[in-house]
Simulated scan of single mutants.
Amino acid sequence: MNRFRAAVLAGALLTLGLPAMAVAAPDTTMHTACTSTTNSTTPTMHCFALYRSTHAFGPNATPEGYGPADLRSAYKLPSTGGAGQTIAIVDAYDNPNAEADLATYRQQFGLPACTTANGCFKKVNQRGAASPLPTGSPNWGVEISLDLDMVSAACPDCHILLVEADTPTSENLGAAEDTAARSGASAVSNSYGTDEFNGMDADAKHYQHPGVAILASSGDYGFQPASFPASLANVIAVGGTTLAKADNARGWTETAWSRAGSGCSAWIPKPAWQHDANCGMRTVADVAAVADTDPGLAVYDTYGLGTQAGWITVGGTSASSPFIAGIIGLAGNGSQITDASSLYTHADKLFDVVGGSNGYCGGDYLCTGLDGYDAPTGLGSPNGVGAL
């Protein structure tokens, strides 16, 4: 955490009357796919994909972690819907195996084929052209595979557009965002972020496209100052949960994930539709879905992990953002969602996530899963498509 972010977090804790304390140490079985890069003149984003190393990797391994049927059960999703809808994914660099790996995932779980040939899948560069594609990056390759698989899990009948930025700078990812929004997509998911920075208002325009739902992951570092672009008022900030099967009416329990990003923006004013008490600025997140790597989500990737390529178990809020984007496609309402405000008027159609914590805030809603709104999980997780 840099000095500015540390100062903002300390200020938030003091507002609550609490001493400044560090968040819990991360689980060492989790590996970060993308590392953070800091450049004083060109802000650089990093992806939020995490993967576990405590199981057997490889193309012949049995998939471990939740698959599409588990997620449809947990979130009460309809088995059909989304035909004619396109979900766009924005990432950096190229994953040359993206389409082939997506085909393996969908075949494994009985989902319809989604290929370039049948018009379901399309991959372009940040200018919207099929070539030349960016240089490949194994790290971002894991992120791309995760994003494509999570959209597929949520909305098997949706078309998928993958827009690959030349590099993960705010400028290039912003250009890719504009291309994705111009494509006719009903929702655009962004599983990356960076520290808020002076001058980010110049990049904010790339994430504001009326008639297109824009989503961003809240981050995987627990209770800290908010991450850009999730902190933008017109972006739906997606937090993370821990999801477990249970013997109850829902069949599942859900709590705030210990690493789900949450925080109070230092730059973005509080939207008129957000009314939480202990953050005078924009609070992250708005909504959430599964992100915990235990037991995690089954993903197929043959590019990002070298000799460990194949079936891997992945998580992070990099999973929850494209999954929620897919549910928006399933509902067919993306053109009516210009920010998170509609979620705040349909909170009764979400599962309220209670329990769990992502840091130290004396049990306050900014870092604790409580009744009603809380920052790690927002208003809750999808209960069908009614809120989206």
Score class of each variant (00 low, 15 high):
1 M>E: 10
4 F>E: 02
4 F>G: 01
9 L>R: 09
22 A>K: 13
22 A>D: 14
26 P>S: 10
29 T>V: 03
30 M>S: 00
47 C>H: 07
47 C>M: 06
49 A>I: 04
53 S>T: 10
61 A>N: 10
61 A>M: 08
63 P>N: 15
64 E>I: 06
64 E>G: 08
65 G>Y: 09
65 G>S: 14
66 Y>V: 10
67 G>K: 09
68 P>M: 09
73 S>K: 09
75 Y>L: 08
77 L>D: 05
78 P>E: 08
78 P>D: 07
82 G>C: 12
86 T>P: 07
88 A>R: 07
88 A>S: 12
90 V>P: 13
91 D>S: 14
93 Y>V: 13
94 D>N: 13
95 N>R: 01
99 E>I: 13
108 Q>T: 15
111 L>K: 13
112 P>L: 09
114 C>R: 05
115 T>V: 09
117 A>E: 12
122 K>V: 00
124 V>N: 02
130 A>Y: 06
130 A>V: 13
136 G>W: 03
137 S>G: 07
142 V>T: 11
143 E>Y: 00
143 E>L: 02
149 D>W: 02
150 M>S: 03
150 M>C: 05
151 V>D: 07
157 D>A: 05
159 H>L: 02
162 L>E: 05
163 V>L: 05
164 E>A: 11
165 A>Q: 03
167 T>H: 09
172 N>I: 01
173 L>D: 01
174 G>H: 09
174 G>Q: 09
178 D>L: 08
185 A>S: 09
185 A>T: 02
187 A>T: 08
190 N>L: 07
191 S>R: 01
195 D>P: 15
197 F>A: 14
197 F>Q: 14
198 N>A: 15
200 M>D: 12
201 D>F: 11
202 A>E: 13
208 Q>Y: 15
208 Q>C: 14
210 P>Y: 15
217 S>T: 06
218 S>V: 05
218 S>T: 08
220 D>A: 02
221 Y>K: 15
221 Y>D: 15
222 G>F: 12
225 P>Q: 13
228 F>H: 14
229 P>E: 10
232 L>P: 10
233 A>D: 13
236 I>Y: 02
236 I>T: 06
237 A>S: 14
240 G>N: 05
242 T>V: 05
243 L>G: 04
243 L>E: 02
244 A>F: 04
248 N>V: 11
248 N>Q: 11
249 A>L: 15
253 T>V: 05
257 W>A: 14
259 R>W: 11
261 G>I: 03
262 S>K: 01
262 S>C: 03
266 A>I: 04
269 P>R: 05
278 N>G: 00
280 G>N: 01
281 M>I: 00
281 M>Q: 06
282 R>G: 03
291 A>F: 06
292 D>R: 00
293 T>S: 05
295 P>W: 04
300 Y>A: 01
302 T>P: 11
302 T>L: 08
302 T>W: 07
307 T>D: 09
314 V>D: 11
316 G>C: 01
316 G>Q: 00
319 A>V: 02
328 I>S: 03
332 G>I: 06
332 G>W: 07
333 N>H: 11
337 I>L: 15
348 D>F: 14
350 L>S: 14
356 G>A: 15
359 G>N: 08
365 Y>F: 14
367 C>W: 04
369 G>L: 10
370 L>P: 09
372 G>K: 04
374 D>Q: 15
376 P>E: 07
377 T>C: 15
378 G>S: 15
385 V>T: 15
386 G>K: 12
